[in-house]
Amino acid sequence: MTPIYLLRATALKAASLLLVLLGVSFLTFLLYFFAPGDKALAIANARYNGEGSTSPQLVEQIRLETGLDHPFFVQFYNWIFDVIQLDFGLSLVSQEPVSEILMSQLWETLELAISSLVIGMTLALTLSLISVWKPKTLIDRFAIAVSSVGAAIPSYWLGLLLILLFAAELQWLPAYGTGSMAHLILPASALSLSVLASQTRLIRSFLLEASAAPFLEALKLRGVGPKELFFKHIVRHAFVPFITMLSLELAFLLEGAVIVEVVFARGGIGSLLVHSVMSRDFPVIQCIVIFSAVTYVSINSAVEIFQWSINPVSRQA
């Protein structure tokens, strides 16, 4: 890839990222604005724990303080103008900077997502390699069964089963909370099943496609052995789509960790989002939505640019 082509591709991706962020911000603000219920009352109840102090005067004071008395476009303009300056404002409930709240919870989600990705990808890669190396055997059928069954089991349902067995019945592991490696095992296991199921199917198909490449016959005629042919050529040929799916899977996991964090009562962006929605803490909600959009689009754009740089054919797509 020439520097000019790379620069143009990066500029186009940056422009698309800005459009996506603007669209996501507007839609989220629109849904929040027209959501039922009194937002000022919900904020007052969350801020003061609903201890009988939510008088009409206090609710009206909060409405004026947060600008909820302004029309839709005025509220959106005031908010987006600050966001452009990377100022996400203060939480309507705790009065803390939104960016600090997000960063304090980000590590919990990253820890869960990366742990699930490592577990799921390691098992999927191992199972796929053995499956393709020994086709039409018991391990091959097992890989197909895992990818089918795992795709049909929701992470939250598996999480509840793991809590019932390992926490309630056997009492080997804690059922909820954070703070130690033991608290991470069950939620990471529940979330990694979706990675194992989807990636086993994809990696296996990548390897099978690479096994049918025409150049392999020429290598066989040159006397290349089966092991060298498989590990040096077939696996390397399937490496590019594998890296692509690895990157995108991490973006999906950062979003999919929301339900698992709630099931296991963990800290993290997912739990923060649920609590913010319940308390109508819009600045926190919007910051989390924008962070998710930036993460997904940035990873997706980086993967596409990586593909363009190493695969000339993909540039014409």
Rank of each mutant, 00 (worst) to 15 (best):
F264A: 06
S115N: 10
F72V: 07
L31S: 10
S309P: 09
S25C: 02
L64V: 14
I4R: 15
L27E: 05
A42I: 06
E304G: 05
I259W: 04
A9I: 05
G267V: 03
A197F: 01
G268H: 09
P283M: 11
L30P: 02
S189V: 15
S298E: 08
E65I: 01
F239E: 00
H70G: 10
S292M: 14
S94D: 03
E304D: 15
L41T: 02
S247F: 01
L112F: 10
S128L: 04
L22Y: 13
D38C: 08
R63C: 04
Q316V: 13
A175L: 11
V260P: 05
V146R: 04
L208Y: 03
L106P: 07
Y77N: 06
L64W: 08
V98E: 05
L64I: 13
E51F: 13
G223Q: 12
L138S: 13
L250N: 08
S148N: 13
S276P: 03
F306C: 11
L92K: 11
F34Y: 15
F306D: 05
T126V: 14
A238W: 02
I43G: 03
S148I: 14
A188V: 03
V258K: 12
S148D: 02
S247V: 00
A188E: 09
I43Q: 09
S25Q: 08
R8C: 02
V195P: 09
L106K: 10
F239L: 15
P214N: 00
V224I: 15
Q95P: 01
R141T: 04
F306R: 05
I243C: 12
T122W: 07
E108Q: 14
V20E: 09
W107S: 13
L92R: 14
F242C: 03
W133C: 03
L229M: 14
Y48D: 13
D140E: 05
A175Y: 01
K227C: 08
A124G: 01
L193K: 07
R222V: 06
L68A: 04
G159M: 06
I139D: 01
W308E: 12
A35R: 04
Q85H: 15
A42W: 00
P241Q: 08
G177K: 08
I185R: 02
